[in-house]
Write a protein that binds this DNA or RNA. Structure first.
Lengths: 211, 211
DNA sequence: CCATGTGAAGAGGTTCACAGCG
DNA sequence: CGCTGTGAACCTCTTCACATGG
């Protein structure tokens, strides 16, 4: 239980968490690594290893207590608090995200939205009023924002990213289909939907794939 | 140049492809692995290794010809053709995807959309008429569809996935925040937006992260 | 006896380093 | 001389296997 955590482990923890929430809702109070591994499509040793990187949550001979393990994972992932999220770009994708209930459900609140299209500025997305992207620095210096979602066209993404990083943002979810070059202190996750379809098309064409 | 291709390589090829398209547009006709690695944030040996898994595309002492390399990667990824894509679920996310230009730009055409909401059935998303999800099997048996995008709620995803797999679909892009359990002959890519935010929140809380 | 937690072994992917060739 | 292509070394993550404890 030490220092370097594989990214893959973090992503699996999210999946375990979601599954445990579901199982807890069904009244299950104990689960073995074998069972959890089966429903998530990983080996039981993978489950145990992932969890053991953060502590000992189970009981030998029995398994893991569902509600408690869920709480522990929530704590590990930082899901026991609210996160203030900003959005840049309210095109089709950005607008859909403002209405995406899973974010809010997990404590990620989109608290502000920006765009550079004069016709959109001032319009609303639910409760949110779209602001001028020119005002983004002023806003970020006054209001606390934990992470930013970029849903802007590819040719604007790098510029916008640098701007928000300059305002102290250290976590970015990037929907633009381009790789951002940012200092290593900034965490970036890409949500590149075309790349995922391309991975599928590759798989269909080359049935010798992957891992 | 042989058999097993790492998934990570495939995903990087997509990024190289996009970058090469951009550089070609700027009139660049040759690029070294060093330069391409720099702009994509990977090592030059990584670039060379990735490409060498599929052939020899470069010239020693010079680098890679941009337009030709782009064409070669397009061929490898299956981007030199059109793909017929179906969509299930035209809520916020699904609707945004019907209007997402990057898909079409890369040859992924959403040719049909389904939903189970009577108020949505018959309505239009651009040119697309939303069909009743009850008719999905009938449709898939008549029309050729290469891959399906699932943008349905988590509690319906598994059922819908099994249904389309039963109709012969072998590639699924899953936006539902739940792990699908499907036969290994089916390629699934998850686009789990909450998980990505959770990876960011973990990173912010534990500045010792990843890899 | 059952299932966890973990050191050791095994796979898989990345980086190194250099031979080879334009 | 410069840069590719590639086997070998390295490193990271996964799986194995078993000691441990309820």
């Amino acid at each position: 239980m030490g220092s370097k955590i594989p990214l893959a482990t973090v992503l699996r923890l999210s999946r375990y968490y979601r599954r445990l929430a579901h199982l807890e809702g069904q009244g299950m109070n104990t689960i073995s690594s074998k069972k959890l591994g089966e429903v998530e499509g990983v080996t039981s040793s993978q489950v145990r290893k992932d969890l053991s990187l953060f502590g000992s949550f189970g009981t030998k001979g029995l398994g893991y207590p569902v509600p408690e393990l869920k709480r522990n994972i929530a704590y590990i992932l930082g899901l026991d608090r609210k996160w203030r999220v900003g959005l840049v770009g309210v095109g089709n994708v950005g607008s859909a995200l403002t209405a995406y209930k899973e974010f809010h459900k997990q404590g990620f609140d989109i608290v502000v939205a920006f765009d550079n299209d004069k016709r959109k500025i001032g319009s609303k997305r639910g409760e949110l009023v779209v602001r001028d992207v020119e005002d983004i620095e002023e806003y970020l210096k006054q209001e606390k924002v934990d992470m930013m979602i970029l849903a802007v066209p590819a040719d604007q993404a790098q510029k916008v990213a640098e701007k928000v990083v300059g305002c102290g943002i250290r976590a970015i979810l990037n929907f633009a289909p381009i790789s951002l070059r940012l200092p290593p202190c900034v965490f970036v996750r890409d949500e590149n939907m075309v790349i995922e379809l391309e991975a599928l098309s590759f798989s269909l064409m080359n049935r010798r794939l992957i891992e």
